[in-house]
Amino acid sequence: MTTTTLINPTEHEAEKASNSYLMSLIAVIAGLPLPIINLIATLIFFIGNRKGTYFVRWHCTQALLSQLSMLFVNSFAFWWSVSILFTAETITNQFIAYVFTILIVNIIEFIATIQAAIKTRKGMHVAWWFYGTLTNIICKP
């Protein structure tokens, strides 16, 4: 669920905005299992661009917020798996269902991120459901 509008940013702005989404995919590319890596990569990019133009800041914020929520759901799965491997916790239907749930959520987020990266590179403004609304409140022109 996204809203796309054409606002004609400069070539440099479109590239930076697009990169903010690509940064959140860095952990997937590097094959790292820790969910916090995505967030750190996006956060570094966000801090680096906090004085950028509104278009760049807005997309950096949206990318960061989506990664922040992903961190919670992924971390929960990560520590649950650790407890199964190293404590008396066992594999249950609840755990497997949770793993599948976050797998689906991560796939949706992954596709949405790639789509946002492509569209912002073309100079289009992409606002996601909930995250776009939240970014509008946080990020002011």
Partner: peptide
Amino acid sequence: MKKLIFQGLVIIALFFALWFSLRAVNWVK
């Protein structure tokens, strides 16, 4: 703000609905 809360709640509800639906399957078996 109301729109934000509504959208947030919908996302949370969808997440839990998906989790609880998947829980109905006997994955262990």
